[in-house]
Every structure is written in C-alpha cells, then in structure tokens.
Design a binder for these strands. Structure first.
Lengths: 247, 247
DNA sequence: GGTTATCTTTGACTTAAGTCAACCGGGACT
DNA sequence: AGTCCCGGTTGACTTAAGTCAAAGATAACC
C-alpha cells in the first residue's frame, strides 16, 4: 500500500493508487451531486480529489477561513454550525454520507461563513475550487446538479428561519420528530441520531429547555421517551403542534 | 404601441415589439445574473422572457404555488416572506432592481417555499423554467453566475439564522443599521427604506419591541432617530453591540 | 381640507425560554 | 471498586420579548 500522508488542518490527506482511484470514481458516480456524469469527467474529478480523514471532534474549518474548495462526506457525520460571542452554538446542518458542504465559498465570498467539525471519525473528499470550477464550466449537467443541491439547501434554510422566528420550541421539536419519522423505516419509533444537547443546538435552544419540553410532550401523551428512543404516540396532535408552532 | 395585455396572477403581462425587446436585452445584459453573456444568448433569453407588472401590495406568488419559473426585479421592490399560522410574518428578503427571486423551484422542489408581494408598483421579468433550464445547459457561464447568486443567498440565510438564534433584538437591529450604513453614500445618516413595522418583521420581531429598542438605543446615545431617518452617533458601540448580540 | 385608515409609540401585564445551581446516572479510566 | 467526567434532568429564579390596549402621529384618500 503506497500511502502519502500529510498533516493539514488536522486532517490526514491520503494519496491513491490506481485501484483506490477506481473505487473513489465509482463512489463519486453514485453521489447525487455527480450522478449521471460521464466516466471521463469523473476521471478528471478523481484527479483533483483528495481523500481526507478527520477524527471525531476534529475541526474541519472555521468561519472566516479562506475556502479553497469544498467537501463531500464519505463516512461519518459532519456538523456545520455558528457560535455566538458568549459560546452558544446553533447548528446549521448535519451532513452524512454523500452530502456536500462548504460549497458557498467556491462560488461566492471566498471564505467559510460557518464552522465545521467531525461528529464521528470521518472520511471526506476534498475538491479544490479552481479545478472544480473548470470542471463545472466544461460540464453543464454538473452545474444543474449543483444548482439543485444549493436550491434544496436554500429551501431548508428558509424553513429554518421560519421555524426559529415563527415557532416556539415545542413546535420546532414536533416538526423535527416528524422529519425524522419521515426518513426512517419504522415510522413510529425514532432513534435520535444526535445527543440531546446537540439536538437542542439544532433546534436553536438549550439542553434544559429541550429536556423540559420532551417531558412535557410525554406527559401530554404525544410521545414516549426512553433514552435516545422516542416513540410517536399521537401523530395527529404532533402534526398539529408542528403546524401551529405553539403548545 | 402594440400591447397585448393578459390578466394573470394579478400581474399584467406585456408583449413586446422589436424596440422594447432591444431595451430589455440591454437591461438583462447589465444584470449581475446575465452580465457577460453573449448577445446571441441574451436574444434567446428575451424570446422567453415576459415583462409583468404588479401594483403595490399585489401578491406575486404564495408558498406552495407551483413554480413554473422565476423573476427578476426591473422596477420597485419585492418582499419575500413566511407567515405563521397565527399571522405573524417573517421577511426573508427584500429585493430591488436587478435582483432575482423565486429561483429555488426552478432547480429543486417545484413549488415556492415562501410568499412574495410587491412593496411598490413593480415591473418584473418572468423567466419560464423549461426554456431557462435549456439555456443554462447551453451556457455554462450562466450557470456559474447563478451558482454565485445562490451561494450568496445561502450566506445571507446563514447569517440570518445566526442572528435570529444567537442575537437579541438590539444586536440584530445594530447589525442591520450597520449593514444599511455600509451600502449608503452618507455613512452616518440612514434613511430606513422600510416602514418600521416591516423592519420589525425583517428582524424577526414586532413593531412594539422594535420601537422600544430604537428609543433605548437613542437614550443610550448610540443613535438619533427622526422619523425614518436614523443617525449613527456612536458607531464603535453599535459595532460592539452587533458583535456580542446583547445590550 | 378634512376624514380615515394605517403606522408608531407608550404603558401594564404575561409568558416562553434562558440562567444558575444542584443532582442523578452511566461510562471510562486508574 | 472507586473516582471522575459528561450528559441529562429538575427546580427556583430572571429576563427578553410578546400581548393587549390606548393614544398620538402620519400618510392616504375622497
């Protein structure tokens, strides 16, 4: 195994032999961002891509850092967040395998607007800006995929602003539980994929408040809580709550 | 003057003769979205574009409406906003001449996530989705411009989430005043371009609260208020306030 | 120009959610 | 096993900001 290792930003960049490049190529092609791209272009992409590893809790970038490219999650989860001057954090996204992050500075602004850390031990693909922009220029369908991703994210943000400004915490929580429910197999038994502290930060509140509201919802018979497992008892009312935003 | 008028969505679509098309073409070319595009493509664009007029307060689209295309502001201002079930509104953007809006459904989701109304009597350019997507496919540099616009907007949203979640109203207000200051000629005397009620909605609060905080800031010697004119007295402290987010 | 309607300000009150502090319980490590 | 530490929960308290109501100030309209 010929591996070149370089320390940089706390991540370990890993060089590739032909075989590894092949598997990376295959993986990239399955990614929603690059789905449907001709192999020739994927090949080029592989040429500029770097696989980087980050350990759990490692900082990937900070707000204000110059963004010389963006990332794609291969393994693990990444948290993108903002911090207030007194240390409170607001999570903007949690990203899992296949999802890109840090794209904004590639096309506008040149620096990251937020921070990113690894929530688990992670493997990421790093795509340097210049090479990537060239590729986009040469390949309009790639641009369309990207536009779709950014548009989707814009929608999420709009929802988030709506939620933060127009709903109380119980409403946001209800909406989040239903969101989890919608994307899981067992529709009624949810496994919280984040610690409650992190969930609080995602919902724009603090652990104490989240804790209180979870028990309030349990007492009211909307849900049942058992550690990180939440069971939806009364979906109707939960939907109503997510809708009106107030308990 | 040969004008074809059609009522639709409360807007008046206006057909064009050759001369009008020429001026539209020129205008489009000066827009940041289409800057640098070859005339041939602008010509095509003109072919699919429609100029639409909306009177002040007219609804342009509602959340959930199928988005068959997007808009570009020629004259006037447009407000894009969300409404809670009990009627409180949160403004997402205020758009002026040259700025596009309603692009999200073109590339993802197919329906508008928010509402839009005309704040003034407006003239807008409407670009239908299908024709536009074709054009983007044919013209990668157009895609890059679009990516820049969406990325920029993503940044704005991130800031907004940060602001709503991590700052108190005084902090948000201070940040907004400094933002206005940065984009005006006379750096210290600001003309509020929105009614205070609308400004409250943009800052994620209500008129009463905004009013109180404006006078609080005046009393504290940060600013001076005279109707819609706000003078920055102590920029240093205002910056500090915008930074820490709390008074 | 005067009447209406809308916007703005101010006051008294309520409330959701944050702060501070104590405590519990389960790993992890020695 | 025992200690330490971190995550979660609970209680008492504070506070920013929302609600309700009324009165002034602007701006709009006939």
């Amino acid at each position: 195994m010929e591996e070149t290792e370089k320390k940089e930003q706390g991540g370990r960049k890993t060089g590739m032999n032909g075989e590894q490049c092949q598997s990376l190529l295959k993986w990239l092609g399955e990614t929603s961002l690059f789905a449907g791209m001709p192999d020739a272009h994927l090949q080029e992409l592989c040429g500029i891509a770097m696989v980087v590893s980050y350990k759990r809790r490692a900082l990937i970038f900070s707000a204000g850092d110059p963004g010389s490219g963006f990332y794609l999650v291969m393994e693990g989860r990444v948290k993108v967040y903002m911090i207030s001057s007194d240390g409170k954090e607001q999570i903007l996204h949690i990203l899992g395998p296949g999802e890109p992050f840090g794209e904004a500075p590639v096309f506008a602004g040149r620096s990251f607007p937020a921070h990113a850390v690894a929530l688990d031990d992670c493997r990421l693909v790093f795509l340097p800006r210049e090479a990537f922009v060239e590729l986009v220029t040469a390949n309009p369908s790639l641009a369309l995929n990207l536009l779709a991703v950014l548009s989707q994210r814009l929608r999420q943000f709009a929802k988030m602003v709506d939620s933060l400004s127009l709903k109380e915490v119980p409403g946001r929580l209800a909406a989040h539980l239903l969101y989890l429910s919608a994307k899981q197999a067992d529709k009624d038994v949810l496994e919280l994929d984040l610690s409650k502290t992190q969930l609080a930060s995602l919902l724009g509140t603090i652990p104490e408040t989240l804790s209180r509201i979870l028990s309030k919802l349990q007492r009211a018979g909307y849900i049942r809580i058992a550690g990180a497992k939440v069971t939806i008892v009364d979906r109707e009312r939960l939907e109503e709550l997510a809708e009106v935003g107030r308990f």
